[in-house]
Design a protein around this nucleic acid. Sequence first.
RNA 1: GCUGCUGUGGCGGAAUUGGCAGACGCAAGGGACUUAAAAUCCCUCGGUGGCGACACCGUACCGGUUCGAUCCCGGUCAGCAGCACCA
Length: 803
Amino acid sequence: MEKYDFKAIEKKWQDLWDAEHTFAAKQDFTLPKYYALVEFPYPSGQGLHVGHPRSYTALDIVARKKRMQGYNVLYPMGWDAFGLPTENYALKNHIHPEVVTANNVARFKGQLKSLGLSFDWDREINTTDPDYYKWTQWIFLQLYKHGLAYKKEMNVNWCTGCKVVLANEEVVEGKCERCGSDVVHKAKSQWMLKITAYADRLVDDLDGLDFIDRVKVQQKNWIGRSHGAEVKFATTAGDDLVVYTTRPDTLFGATYMVMSPEHPFIEKWAGQITNLDAVRAYQAEAARKSDFERTELSKEKTGVRLEGVRAMNPVNGKEIPIFISDYVLISYGTGAIMAVPAHDERDWEFAKKFGCPIVEVVKGGDVEQAAFTDCATGVMVNSGFLDGMSVEQAKKAIVDWLAEKGLGTPKTNFKLRDWVFSRQRYWGEPIPMVHCEKCGWQPLPESELPLRLPELSDFEPGENGESPLARHTEWVNTTCPCCGGPAKRETDTMPQWAGSSWSSLRHTDPGYGKGPVSPEAARYWGPVDWYNGGMEHTTLHLLYSRFWNKFLYDIGVVPFSEPYKKRTSHGMILGENGEKMSKSRGNVVNPDDIIREYGADTMRLYEMFIGDFEKAAPWNTSSIKGCKRFLDRVWNLADTMTPQDGYSEKLEPAMHRTIKKVTGDIDGLKMNTAIAAMMSLLNEFSDAKQVTRGEMATFLKLLNPFAPHITEELWQRCGFAGQIAHAPWPAYDEAKCADKTVEIAVQVNGKVRAKLTVDAAIAAADAIAAAKAEPAVAALIAGKTVAKEIYVPGKLVNIAVKG
RNA sequence: GCUGCUGUGGCGGAAUUGGCAGACGCAAGGGACUUAAAAUCCCUCGGUGGCGACACCGUACCGGUUCGAUCCCGGUCAGCAGCACCA
């Protein structure tokens, strides 16, 4: 046969797949279904990164295998195309974002096709398509109508670089997640989504899902649910100061209180505070600090004591001082705490600095040296009626006592905040709301959707934090849907995360006109069976889309409350030097170059072979050659094929074992060891100098999901019927996986001293007898007492001797 | 600081209900073919000692349990990721 011409072969089959829609999901809803999904890309100007194919190829392998196993597979692709980089590029180059998006999508699509990915292009979606964002807007209106979208004047995270508001999830260490600029606080009126209403379910429902642990852990930490109690402390100012605590058991040890500098009582009590100047100065200082500084300076506690007002510990009647300090956050709990320095590290540090008494109420540590925070072993002391109880018992007892006296109630709190949903930029979905002086905020009638973005030539963001849409008065000025009078449109747009929050649902029937989701298609296809995506989206897209799905479930739009059954995450592909790929580091690998030089099949194989799918792995150009060499040898294998249909006697166990291994490894996302197993099998064929027709057919099928072009071509050239993509996945027989004879190790006291080839079904006594007969073993055990003899079937014999 | 994860040859990585450590691949060295190179094929390839058959050591480090530990337990160190004063 001629040389392996991957260029011609790959083009031939890609064209055929396109022409025949080979991988389109079938409309027959009686077939068993499988919905595989990868996070759809943001079509950036840089084109595809070598990281994209790692995720896409892995699920492509899953999808191709499932098709061969007889499933009706949905493996769709789309474009998450709204967003700042496109808009910034458009601004810089004076091209409309819509044009930029179309160009980028065309390039991405070409690149994805050149990889031979089996996406169903008939179900392509684009979040910037008005037919798509019509329904994104529709979902927003439903959220509004159910009280889950509301407008609020608040301090928001403002990115000084992008000139836009960010969600909490988009702020990393006080900097913008995208551009790295400083994030400052700014008071603005913003649309908010009440994700906190779903906090409990977003935590609890994780238990029933097949998500990798680190995703579950990260989501749980982010939502940050804690159980405790709210407790009322009487003050000399008259108002009760309410605090939230997870350790009500330590109430007897509360020796002072702390309020956040933003706490409203400070204003209220101004007349009674005798050191108001110092308090005001501290408030001003705290307000000046950005989030970043507040966390950076967290080592040293600061604060001011409120002179003139004191509180009373409700459990023992003792008067205790009140401080203000920025280590207490206004945004969490009640904005005030009871301080128990003996059993809380932060309180301990503060008490040491400000000379507050440290009263031990849980025995077990040395509270003069450090706070004792262990809940599991401590015993209550100095706590009146709680003395002698464990921490757990004391928690119950004190909460009951507080409830009885009307001093406190059990309470659950979350770290999760509501989702800031407004962005002051052009390239996003317009928020379909209208403001009327008379009627207030009014939703746009659903019949007027989609509310299209106006054609603008000037979409530079406003300096004052206004959206560019605000300058477009013809679009802004409208009539009130309620009273018909003059009104103004909302000029902020939705965040980039809006469109992707329901995209998995739309793929099930992207053309459906009566709602966001066809009920019939959703019932059949949903939820997604396997979803793969980046860890960086765990507390963003993944959390948001779970929230939206739950909402859509509650209002009867979808019949399932979780959008994804299984979630995995791929590791990053690093540069050859082990650092993150970036232009500035000069270590970027372009997938187009690799495909041109080695072919798509080699590229796919290499990215799957590179290492543990979940871990980061450095790119290594010379390792690619190993994968190319493998495919070259597969190509040449066809020349050694014999006409025999079944498996040769010698290789039969290896064939069954490899089928089992590859099948299981694909399901377990261990593509690297699946490929290793196929390489080993190829080595067996090489040693045998031949391959039977039956072996060839099975081998090509196993390899097909990984290297679809070369296997399709060889399938045809070897004269097998039809296309391999439609061939059934090979089966294995467990009973035929084992060899008839096995080599076992013989150990004396755990050290290998001999090897022995025995019948696989040998009895333990016979194996041990044979082992003892080995000269090397006999010499070592001669004259010693045998303490124990162990036979592990098919593995080894171990003889333990003494003396 | 807290939480989670990881630590295996020159490199990427295999192998754990405790059972022959280093599969598979890369790189390297030697050989065959060739005028030569590339490609291909064959051999070697954890360390130390020995001409040698072999012996001893070896899965970050120290200790424990076991006939047997990369795997389990206790402690130490290093790295990565997430969270970051959430009471």
